[in-house]
Computed example of a mutant assay.
Amino acid sequence: MIRNFDELLICIEKVEKEITKLKEQQRYFICNLNFSKSRQLFSKAQLLELNILNYINYYQNKIKDNYLENKLYKTKLRYLKIKHQPKSIANDLLYCIQELIIEYNELKKICNINELDDDFDFKKTRQYHFDKVELIYVELKNVILFSNSKINANQMIYYKSLTDYLRSYYDKRIKILNKELHCKTEELIRIQMEINVIKNELKLIAVKNKLYND
C-alpha cells in the first residue's frame, strides 16, 4: 500500500530495476537472434510497465480529494505518467542493430588498415555481423508493420537510415558481383576459345592419323 509520494517513487524504482534486467536479457536474445524469447521478455517488461502506471493511478486517486497533496504532486504525477508509458520493442531492436553496426564498421576499419580485405576469416566474420544486422532489421520491420506498438518519429527516422544503410551495402555487393560475373564470363570465353583450339587440333591430328593409316 502506497502511503505517500516518496513511497510511490520507491515502488517505481524497484520495478524499474526489474525492467532493466529484463531489457538486458532481451537484448542478449535479440543479438543472438532468439526473437521468440525476446518477445516473451518484452511481454513481461510491458506488464511491469503497466504496474508502474497502476501505482501512479492508485496514488492519484488516493490524493484527489486532498487539496494540498494534489497541488504539490499533480504536475509530478503527470510527468511520471508520460515518462512511464509502455515502450515499444522497437527500442531494443534499434539499440541492438546500432551496436552491431558499430562492430561491423570497426571490423571494416581493421580490414582496411591491415589490408586484410581478402582475408577469409575477416570477411566471414564481417559477413556474419552484417547478416545479424539484416535479420534484426527484418524483425524490426515486422514490429513496425504488423504490431500495435507505437513507433515514434525518432524510431522512424532511424529505421529509414537503416534502410539506406542496407541499400548502400547491397548496391556495393551488386557492383562487386557484377564485376566478378564479368571477369568469370571473360574467363569462360577464354577457356571456350582454348577448348575450340584443342578441338581443332584433335580434328587435324585425327585427319593426319587417318591419312597415315590409309
Rank of each mutant, 00 (worst) to 15 (best):
I12H: 00
R39G: 03
A45E: 07
R126S: 13
H84I: 10
Y95N: 15
L177P: 12
K108M: 07
D65P: 02
T185Q: 14
K76T: 08
D214L: 14
C96N: 07
N66W: 14
I198S: 03
E115Q: 11
D171N: 12
E134Q: 09
F120G: 03
N152C: 06
Y165I: 05
K21N: 08
Y95W: 15
N178R: 08
K17I: 10
I2E: 00
F146T: 15
K87Q: 08
D214E: 12
Q155V: 01
I2N: 01
V197T: 10
I113V: 15
R78T: 15
R167F: 03
I198D: 05
N70I: 05
K17Y: 07
L41K: 01
K132I: 03
A206F: 10
K172H: 12
Y165C: 09
F146Q: 11
Q85A: 05
E13M: 08
Q46P: 00
I144E: 01
N34C: 01
N142Y: 13
I63V: 02
M193V: 07
K23F: 02
T185D: 09
E187W: 05
K160W: 09
D119Y: 12
L107T: 06
L8N: 00
V133A: 03
K62N: 08
S43P: 02
N32V: 00
N112M: 15
L77H: 04
S149Q: 14
E24V: 13
N66R: 05
M1F: 11
E7P: 01
I102Y: 06
I110C: 06
M1R: 13
L162S: 01
F120M: 05
L47V: 08
L33C: 04
M193S: 11
K17M: 10
Y28M: 11
K71C: 02
M156A: 07
Q192K: 05
E115L: 12
C96L: 04
E7C: 02
Q98M: 10
